[in-house]
């Protein structure tokens, strides 16, 4: 029993960092979409095209500042650092072309926003996903 307990604990310890590193993009179940491609997520988050296949306007939500999740999200999505993403948005914002994603205080606030708005999208750890939202894209590790 003790050996099984130790093995289980070791397994969970190995699994925990893996799960924490697994980012997913979530949408409202009423968004009318089941899945998004990587290009679609890029287009939405970089402000190129914010219309979901269902016809609803996408409302992406970002995390503030240099949040570690945010850093990993953009690195995995487009291979960019946050400084590069900031420079990208400076180009568009100071041209008056489009708006950056809205900022949620933290992952919980982002989930609340997605749960309340049909077009909202957010990126969170897989372990943070609850029944109020639907996973539409997996960034993996």
């Amino acid at each position: 029993m003790t050996l099984r307990y130790i093995l289980l604990s070791l397994f969970l310890m190995l699994l925990a960092p893996h799960a924490a590193a697994d980012l997913v993009v979530v949408a409202n179940p009423k968004s009318g979409i089941e899945r998004l491609s990587q290009d679609e997520v890029i287009n939405i988050y970089l402000g190129r095209y914010r219309r979901l296949a269902s016809g609803i306007t996408a409302e992406p939500v970002d995390l503030p500042g240099d949040a570690e999740q945010k850093l990993r999200f953009y690195r995995r999505l487009v291979g960019k650092t946050l400084a590069e993403i900031n420079a990208y948005w400076a180009r568009l914002v100071f041209s008056g072309r489009t708006r950056p994603p809205q900022i949620a205080e933290n992952a919980e606030a982002a989930l609340d926003f997605v749960a309340a708005r049909p077009g909202a999208l957010a990126y969170v750890e897989r372990t943070q996903v609850d029944k109020r939202v639907r996973i539409v894209f997996e960034l993996g590790e």
């Binding site: 420079a87 990208y88 400076a90 180009r91 568009l92 100071f94 041209s95 008056g96 072309r97």
Partner: peptide, 19 residues
């Protein structure tokens, strides 16, 4: 009053941080 869209990535040629 709108920026002239001459650059590929931006309307303004003055935002050094963005380029």
């Amino acid at each position: 009053r709108i920026g002239a869209d001459f650059m590929m990535l931006a309307d303004s040629r003055l935002v050094g941080y963005s380029s």
